[in-house]
Amino acid sequence: MSRNALVFGFGLAVALVAGWVVFPRLLYVQKQQPLEFQHKTHAEKSGVADCNECHAIREDGAFAGIPAMEKCAACHSERIGESKAEATLVDSFIKPGHETPWLVYARQPANVWFSHAIHVKRASLACTECHSTYGESDQLRVYQVNRISGYSRDIWGYSISRLRRAPHEGMKMSDCEDCHRRHNIEVGCLACHE
């Protein structure tokens, strides 16, 4: 093998390692949620079986998102247990009346109008189709935010190449379009970008 081929191959290898291994680590910043939260424990102890009981869709069709502090305060007005997270929840948020600044994995940009009511109620999509089985997890994932765009990594998906993604991975506009195409449902631009 000639010297040129070796040097070229070395450059190629360095670029491949940098692009596939180093770049994703540099691109995303890892952030911790302000509190530990266990979906599984809450589901088991409170008997809540349906996502809608906490992540409700209001009567007018709007999605309430993450429950407000008053929902947490219904059970956690005083400490339940001795964990550090419990102390933080009660002392730092519930008693002073502050909302928890959760980092929302699936938050869409401001120019997108996404209706949970239409997708969940009218199209009967299961929550897991977009949000996987996180509702059964016993710890919150690390939140990763893109340094350049400021978006959560869930929007792009965890596969940096976007190849061989799990069905629930990715929330970009192309993912919405793919799903609509699969279900043969056409919508215009203004349906989401009012």
């Binding site: 191959g9 450059g11 190629l12 670029a15 940098a18 691109l27 350049i148 765009s149």
Partner: peptide
């Protein structure tokens, strides 16, 4: 030659395509 190899390699990584996507979003925000 090394640079040519690195450039060729980068083209088959997500770097250019992901950066293009992210900078377009960055410019909107």
């Amino acid at each position: 030659v090394w640079s040519a190899g690195a450039a060729a390699g980068l083209l088959v990584t997500p770097v250019p395509w992901k950066l293009l996507d992210d900078t377009s979003i960055w410019s909107q925000n």
